[in-house]
């Protein structure tokens, strides 16, 4: 997902909890929202900073693979749409950074941690976007997978995170639909265009499945995060849902999902499918994906190159404090 392998701190075992922690867990179990200034266990705070921060970084870094195609979009309309989508991603990143900041971490600290490689972003954005069809595949599959995770997170226990998710979900379905629209166009085009669409699906299928993270059936971290309602479903549940939703969509396009073992399992009421290559996932997370250096390099460069501008605006603001229009 946009937040993968988030290490959770704390204990889900009531016998090991302090009275404060028990009262806190009870509030969450009653579906109460936790708000910034209220008491919360350190582990809850730290885990959320990690998770929301990673999610925010993913939105911002996620602009890069698509930004690659803005100047090369096939029509003016497609270009305007792609610009709007990439602008949305910036907005989503900002909502999430703001949510993380309510937990007592500063924006600059979060960015520094990203730039120093101490915080991660989703593995998916370390893959290249080689053709225009990749814009279709990214919208359809990557945003589709993100929505799978984000819709349930609207009900998460932390108020600011939940509110950010609600805003994001409102805007996100445009992203997936515009991607599918590109795929439909390509698949109804020349044989070469359809082949491009198939190639994009071939390259993005397994990385999209990896977005949900490895199976967390036995993960202690995952159990804690689920008890805190900052993770709403297991990785496997979401991955299964994604496959079941996407397979008929691929069929409609006349494309083949690149998995010879993919088949409907009547008994479980879902598809059986092949696992992605998890060694590749860990390699990408460790910094050895096809585009890790390029992506992080672009972020660091943008931050460093913009320093004079940020400082200049602050100096200007200090000089001209006053002359405001009052609220009416």
């Amino acid at each position: 997902m946009y937040a993968q392998l988030v290490k959770s701190e704390g204990t889900a075992n009531r016998d090991e909890m302090t009275p404060e922690e028990v009262a806190f867990q009870d509030r969450i179990d009653r579906n109460e929202k936790i708000e910034p200034k209220e008491w919360m266990p350190d582990g809850y705070r730290k885990t959320l900073i990690r998770q929301i921060g990673q999610h925010a970084h993913s939105e911002i870094v996620g602009q890069l693979p698509e930004g690659n195609w803005i100047t090369r979009a096939p029509t003016l309309e497609r270009k305007a749409i792609l610009l709007a989508k990439v602008q949305d991603e910036a907005g989503h990143g900002l909502y999430l950074y703001s949510a993380a900041e309510t937990l007592g971490v500063s924006r600059d600290e979060l960015l520094e941690a990203l730039h120093a490689g101490k915080m991660k972003y989703s593995s998916i954005f370390n893959y290249p976007t080689l053709t225009w069809a990749d814009m279709g595949a990214v919208g359809w599959l990557v945003d589709g997978a993100a929505i799978m995770n984000q819709v349930p997170l609207q009900r998460t226990s932390y108020g600011p995170y939940s509110r950010a998710m609600i805003r994001i979900c409102k805007e996100e379905s445009f992203h997936q639909r515009q991607g599918y629209d590109i795929m439909m166009k390509m698949c109804a085009g020349t044989p070469e265009q359809k082949a491009m669409a198939q190639d994009a699906l071939n390259r993005f299928w397994y990385p999209a499945l990896m977005m949900f993270g490895p199976s967390d059936k036995d993960s202690v971290h995952s159990a804690q995060s689920m008890a805190w309602r900052i993770k709403m479903n297991t990785n496997d549940e979401l991955r299964q849902k994604f496959v079941d939703q996407t397979v008929p969509q691929a069929k409609f396009l006349g494309l083949t999902v690149p998995d010879p073992d993919l088949q409907w399992n009547e008994e479980k009421g879902g598809h059986d499918f092949s696992e992605p290559d998890w060694s590749e996932f860990y390699a990408v997370l460790a910094g050895n994906g096809p585009c890790n250096a390029e992506r992080l390099g672009a972020r660091v460069k943008a931050w460093d190159d913009g320093a004079w501008f940020r400082e200049g605006l602050m100096a200007h603001a200090a000089k001209h404090s006053g002359g405001r229009v009052a609220a009416e």
């Binding site: 602008q87 949305d88 907005g91 900002l94 909502y95 509110r163 805007e171 605006l313 602050m314």
Partner: peptide, 27 residues
């Protein structure tokens, strides 16, 4: 009424309004 929609960083009030337009009123 005006309703709280979120927050953002900006050097001054004027830029805060400009940024708010881009971040919170795209639709």
């Amino acid at each position: 009424n005006h309703r709280h929609v979120g927050s953002l960083h900006a050097p001054d009030a004027e830029m805060a309004i400009r940024n708010a337009r881009d971040v919170y009123t795209r639709r």
